[in-house]
Computed example of a mutant assay.
Amino acid sequence: MRHFLTLRDFSKEEILELINFASSIKKEPKKLLVDKSLAMIFEKNSTRTRMAFELGIKELGGRSLFLSSNDLQISRGEPIKDTARVIGSMVDFVMLRVNSHESLLEFARYSKAPIINGLSDLYHPTQVLGDLLTIKEFNKQGKVAFIGDANNMANSWLIAASILGFEIALAIPQNYAINAEILEFAKNEAKKSGAKILITHDKFEALKGKDVVITDTWISMGEEAKKVQKLKDFEGFIVDNKAMSVANEGAIFLHCLPAYRGYEVSEEVFEAHSEVIFTEATNRLHVVKAVLCFLDKFRGI
């Protein structure tokens, strides 16, 4: 049985297979998971992830069950492993959006059903798959700049680039650092794939010569109390017209949403690239379908 917790667990060929299958099923939808069931457990708010999974399994012919963590016995202290053994024996797939990646790992250890990461503090792999599908559709080359926090999106993009073998530059503020173990993994993968990795505190250095520019909110869910300090730390990291002018002509801008204009992105840049951004958002639906179908092949193995 396979889980989908991070792109680290997948080969270059498998990641490309997922993207290509998502592209195919987007053009020609099929009911490939008739009567299959998906449980969705949310510890954090969600718009796009919930819609993508709920609609994805339905359009594939299956059904979903939404489970707020506040309504489960986990909220009263039941061990994750017990909840995993119950839910994982009743459904075909389980998607979790969690505060701690350790919760996903624990759930996967005890579940009889494949586990899918709908977002954790370390990774957001379905989002990056949606981004990669969008880049494919807009015919952009593999030169990427990520501007912003050293968060789950930065981690996931670093992993994707290192496995797929393209160029990525991450610009993060002073006193912020990419997770050391994830960075080490990426550097080792880059030696095999030929990927080029740059970590810098200069957003213009990161943006130079790039075809794809990505950012994310500076204040992740659960960090609201840090907002004032983070706005100070990230001063000057906004992706505005001046920043985009350093990237290659015709570069596209991606944002996983929600977007906070005037902070990580200017209103002008967001609206200029809104077609790409909302294509990116809807592409989550198609990559989720691809992930579900991929994992179904390995059930019972």
Rank of each mutant, 00 (worst) to 15 (best):
residue 3 H to G: 02
residue 5 L to M: 01
residue 6 T to F: 05
residue 8 R to M: 14
residue 10 F to E: 04
residue 18 L to Q: 09
residue 20 N to C: 10
residue 20 N to H: 14
residue 22 A to M: 11
residue 26 K to R: 14
residue 29 P to K: 11
residue 35 D to R: 15
residue 37 S to F: 09
residue 38 L to M: 11
residue 38 L to F: 10
residue 39 A to H: 01
residue 39 A to N: 02
residue 41 I to T: 05
residue 44 K to N: 12
residue 45 N to H: 03
residue 47 T to D: 01
residue 48 R to Q: 00
residue 48 R to A: 00
residue 49 T to C: 01
residue 52 A to T: 03
residue 52 A to V: 02
residue 52 A to I: 02
residue 54 E to T: 07
residue 57 I to S: 08
residue 58 K to G: 00
residue 59 E to I: 07
residue 60 L to G: 05
residue 65 L to E: 07
residue 67 L to A: 01
residue 68 S to V: 05
residue 69 S to Y: 14
residue 69 S to I: 15
residue 71 D to C: 10
residue 73 Q to Y: 01
residue 73 Q to A: 10
residue 74 I to S: 11
residue 75 S to P: 03
residue 77 G to T: 12
residue 77 G to L: 12
residue 78 E to Y: 08
residue 78 E to H: 09
residue 79 P to Q: 12
residue 84 A to P: 08
residue 84 A to S: 13
residue 86 V to P: 06
residue 89 S to Q: 12
residue 102 E to H: 12
residue 102 E to D: 15
residue 105 L to K: 15
residue 106 E to R: 11
residue 110 Y to C: 08
residue 111 S to C: 07
residue 113 A to L: 06
residue 114 P to D: 06
residue 115 I to P: 11
residue 123 Y to G: 02
residue 123 Y to A: 02
residue 127 Q to C: 00
residue 131 D to N: 02
residue 135 I to H: 08
residue 140 K to E: 03
residue 141 Q to K: 15
residue 141 Q to P: 07
residue 143 K to M: 06
residue 144 V to A: 01
residue 144 V to D: 00
residue 145 A to T: 06
residue 152 N to D: 05
residue 157 W to L: 15
residue 158 L to W: 01
residue 158 L to N: 01
residue 158 L to Q: 03
residue 159 I to C: 02
residue 160 A to H: 05
residue 162 S to K: 06
residue 162 S to P: 08
residue 163 I to G: 06
residue 164 L to A: 02
residue 165 G to A: 05
residue 168 I to V: 12
residue 168 I to G: 07
residue 169 A to M: 10
residue 171 A to D: 07
residue 172 I to D: 00
residue 172 I to M: 10
residue 173 P to E: 12
residue 175 N to Y: 11
residue 176 Y to P: 04
residue 178 I to N: 09
residue 180 A to C: 12
residue 185 F to T: 11
residue 187 K to R: 15
residue 189 E to Q: 15
residue 190 A to H: 09
residue 190 A to F: 08
residue 192 K to R: 15
residue 196 K to F: 13
residue 197 I to T: 09
residue 207 L to W: 13
residue 209 G to Y: 12
residue 210 K to H: 14
residue 212 V to G: 04
residue 218 W to Y: 10
residue 222 G to K: 12
residue 224 E to V: 05
residue 226 K to F: 12
residue 227 K to S: 12
residue 230 K to T: 05
residue 231 L to K: 14
residue 233 D to H: 11
residue 233 D to Y: 10
residue 235 E to G: 10
residue 235 E to A: 14
residue 240 D to Y: 11
residue 241 N to V: 15
residue 247 A to F: 05
residue 251 A to V: 01
residue 256 C to P: 14
residue 257 L to D: 00
residue 258 P to A: 00
residue 259 A to Q: 00
residue 260 Y to D: 06
residue 260 Y to E: 02
residue 261 R to N: 03
residue 261 R to S: 03
residue 262 G to Y: 12
residue 265 V to S: 04
residue 268 E to C: 04
residue 270 F to A: 03
residue 270 F to R: 03
residue 276 V to F: 05
residue 276 V to G: 04
residue 278 F to D: 11
residue 280 E to S: 02
residue 280 E to A: 00
residue 283 N to K: 06
residue 283 N to V: 01
residue 291 V to N: 10
residue 298 F to N: 09
residue 298 F to E: 04
residue 298 F to L: 03
residue 298 F to W: 14
residue 299 R to S: 06
